[in-house]
Amino acid sequence: DEVTIHLGDKTIRVDGLDKELLEILKELARRGADEEELRKEIERWER
């Protein structure tokens, strides 16, 4: 499953996201997290 996250004018595509992680990323994005913060969160989950 590829998920596309839209952040204002930026788009991040991620393969096979965990549903819980997806919810966390959506919440972070709502709070104004930037792409770098979201990537760090994704990397934390992948470990």
Rank of each mutant, 00 (worst) to 15 (best):
E43S: 05
L25A: 00
E46H: 13
R31L: 06
E23K: 14
R44D: 05
T11A: 11
G16L: 12
D1C: 14
K10F: 15
A29P: 00
G32K: 02
R47G: 11
E23R: 15
G8D: 07
E23Y: 14
E35P: 07
V14R: 02
L38W: 04
A29E: 03
R13I: 11
K26R: 15
R39G: 02
T11P: 07
V14P: 04
G8W: 05
R30D: 03
I42Q: 03
G32C: 02
R31E: 03
L21T: 01
R47C: 12
I12L: 09
D18S: 14
A29G: 03
K19G: 07
G16W: 09
A29W: 15
K40P: 00
H6L: 11
L22K: 05
A33T: 03
T4R: 07
R13T: 13
R47P: 05
D18G: 08
V14T: 06
I42N: 00
E46V: 12
I12H: 03
V3C: 13
T11R: 05
L28D: 00
E41Q: 09
E46W: 15
R39N: 04
E41C: 06
R47H: 13
V14S: 03
E2I: 14
R13F: 11
D1I: 13
K19E: 11
G32V: 00
G8P: 06
L7A: 08
R30N: 05
E27T: 12
T4W: 05
D34E: 08
I12C: 06
K40D: 07
R47E: 08
E2W: 13
I42A: 02
E2N: 11
H6V: 14
L21M: 03
T11Y: 04
V14F: 15
I42D: 00
E37R: 12
L21A: 01
W45S: 01
V14E: 03
L21N: 00
G32A: 01
A29Q: 06
H6G: 07
E23M: 13
E36Q: 11
D9G: 08
D9K: 05
V3W: 15
L7F: 11
W45I: 01
E36F: 14
E35I: 13
L17Q: 04
D1V: 12
T4I: 14
D15Y: 04
R31P: 00
A29H: 06
L25W: 01
R39I: 11
L17R: 07
D34Q: 10
I24S: 04
H6P: 08
G8V: 10
E35G: 04
H6K: 12
D9P: 06
A33M: 05
E36V: 11
K10E: 07
R31A: 10
R47V: 09
R47Q: 12
L22Y: 11
L25Q: 00
A29K: 10
D1L: 12
T4A: 10
H6E: 12
R31C: 06
A33S: 04
G16C: 06
E36Y: 15
H6T: 14
V3Q: 14
R44L: 09
L25F: 01
D9C: 07
D15Q: 08
L7P: 04
T4P: 07
K19S: 12
H6W: 05
V14C: 07
D9I: 04
E37I: 09
E46K: 10
G8N: 09
I5W: 00
E2L: 12
T11L: 13
L21R: 02
R39Q: 08
D9M: 05
R31T: 05
I42W: 06
D15R: 10
E41Y: 14
E36K: 08
R13N: 14
T11D: 10
D18T: 10
L21P: 00
L7R: 02
R39W: 12
E20T: 11
L21H: 02
G16S: 11
D18W: 06
L25G: 00
R13Y: 10
L7E: 03
V14L: 15
E41P: 00
E23F: 13
E43N: 08
L17P: 02
W45Q: 01
H6Q: 15
R30A: 10
R39F: 08
W45L: 02
D1Y: 11
I42L: 05
I12Y: 03
A33D: 01
L17W: 08
L17C: 06
I42G: 00
K19C: 05
I12Q: 02
D15W: 02
E41L: 08
L28Q: 01
L38P: 00
D15K: 14
E46I: 15
D18H: 12
K40W: 09
I24D: 01
G32D: 01
D15L: 02
K19W: 11
K26S: 06
R30H: 05
R44N: 10
V14W: 08
E43P: 00
T4L: 12
D15A: 12
R13Q: 11
E37H: 05
K10R: 09
L38Q: 01
K19Y: 09
V3Y: 15
L7M: 07
K19A: 12
T11Q: 08
L7C: 03
D9L: 06
D9N: 12
D9Q: 06
E37W: 05
A29S: 07
K40G: 06
R39Y: 13
V3K: 09
K26D: 02
E20D: 11
R39P: 00
D15T: 11
A33N: 01
E41I: 10
A33W: 05
H6D: 12
E46D: 07
R47I: 12
R44M: 10
R39C: 05
D18V: 09
K19I: 10
L28A: 02
L17G: 04
I42T: 01
L17T: 05
L22N: 02
E41G: 01
D15N: 08
E46G: 14
I24K: 11
L7I: 14
V3L: 13
L38F: 08
A29I: 15
E36L: 10
G16T: 11
A33Y: 07
E23H: 09
I42E: 01
K10H: 11
E46R: 10
R13V: 13
R30T: 04
D34W: 02
K26C: 03
R39T: 04
V3R: 05
T4F: 14
E27C: 15
I12P: 01
E2H: 13
K19T: 09
G16E: 08
E27D: 10
A29D: 01
D34C: 03
D18I: 06
D34I: 04
V3S: 13
K26H: 09
G16A: 09
E46A: 13
L25T: 00
E27Y: 11
E20R: 14
L17H: 06
I24N: 04
G8R: 05
E43C: 08
E37A: 14
K10C: 05
I42S: 01
E27V: 09
W45E: 00
V3N: 15
D1T: 14
G8E: 07
E23G: 08
A33C: 02
E20M: 12
K40M: 09
R31Y: 05
K19D: 09
E35V: 11
T4G: 06
G32N: 03
R44E: 07
L22Q: 12
E37C: 09
G8L: 07
I5S: 04
I5H: 03
R30L: 12
L17A: 07
K26I: 14
R47F: 13
D15I: 14
R39L: 13
L21I: 05
D9S: 07
L38I: 14
E2S: 14
E46Q: 15
E20C: 11
A33I: 03
V14K: 03
L17D: 02
G8S: 12
D1Q: 12
E41H: 05
I24L: 10
R44W: 09
A33F: 08
E23I: 12
L28W: 04
K10S: 13
K40F: 08
E36R: 08
T11H: 07
E20N: 10
E41F: 15
D1G: 13
K10L: 15
L25N: 00
L38E: 00
K26Y: 15
E36G: 08
D9T: 06
L25Y: 01
E36M: 13
L25K: 00
L7G: 04
E27I: 13
R31K: 09
D34V: 05
R44C: 08
G16Q: 13
R47K: 11
K10W: 09
R30M: 08
E43F: 04
I24P: 00
R31V: 03
L25R: 00
L38N: 00
K10G: 10
V3D: 11
I42M: 07
I12S: 02
E20I: 12
D18A: 14
W45D: 00
G32F: 01
E23A: 13
T4C: 11
D1E: 12
L7T: 05
D1K: 10
K40E: 08
L17E: 02
E27A: 14
V3I: 14
E41W: 15
D18P: 15
L28S: 01
R31Q: 08
W45Y: 06
D34M: 07
D15F: 03
E20L: 12
R44V: 05
R44G: 05
D34A: 09
L28E: 00
E20K: 14
R30E: 04
G8F: 06
E27G: 09
L17K: 07
K40V: 06
W45V: 01
I5D: 03
E43R: 06
D18N: 08
D15H: 08
L22S: 03
I5T: 04
E2R: 09
E46M: 15
A29T: 07
E20W: 11
T4N: 10
E35K: 04
E2M: 13
E20Y: 10
L17I: 13
K26M: 15
E37F: 06
I5V: 06
L21S: 01
E46C: 15
A29N: 04
I24F: 08
I12A: 02
L28G: 00
A33H: 04
E46T: 13
L28K: 02
L21K: 03
E35D: 06
L22D: 01
E37D: 12
D34K: 13
D1F: 11
E36P: 04
K40T: 07
R30W: 06
D18K: 08
E46S: 08
E43Y: 06
R44S: 08
R13G: 05
D34H: 07
L21F: 04
G16R: 10
I5C: 08
